[in-house]
Amino acid sequence: MFLTEKKDLKEIDEALSKYKKIGIVGCASCASVCLTGGSREVKEMERHLTASEKEVTFTISIDEPCDKRVLREDIRFVEDEMDDTEAVVVLSCGTGVQTIGEFVEKKVISGTDSRYIAKTEHIGEYNALCGGCDECRLNFTGGVCTITLCPKGLLNGPCEGHDGVHCEVYEDSECVFMKSYKLLSKYSEEENLNRVFFPRDYGLLLKQIKI
């Protein structure tokens, strides 16, 4: 799931100051799970905008606003209202906001801050485990990502700042390399203990982006 957080309403109000007729799009996937863009949050936004003397032209929750195929199907339900809309508040991650913006060709305003790919522990409690870095090394680390879980994103071993157990930055947590080495030993993958990883190729990230 991609974790989002609700934006401060002041920022949304400021972004909407020039617009009167507003549509609201929610995300029934990730943003719904993290309580930032489900149908309840869409209703809340509608109440807020109405109270702020805006005219809400439509509300809709789309299963995956980041998927253009789904978006194309679902947005037809508000096609007529869209024509009469000046700006759209999108309660999804940044990918959803931009996908909608490109599709509807209207001013879009993000109602959330995008954070990270998250594991859901409980509703309201999330953890980052994967940074989507394009060079997955999980097969060699005992299944824990040192790039994401080490605050320095190191590949080859702990920094000099740990205290023998704990991470220099996350002082209550075990250094991820200690965890990785325990898992490698558990799975009898001693050969990976001595593996030297070459520096990452950040150029790979750019190859995915089309503007």
Binding site: E160, E168, V169, F198, P199
Partner: peptide, 28 residues
Amino acid sequence: VSEGLHPLKTMFKAAKPVYDIDVFGLAL
């Protein structure tokens, strides 16, 4: 060389850390 104290532990807490390569990168 060292990996270096994370910015959060310095006076520049909001700075983006680099860590482009680690000490192995330099050794390589």
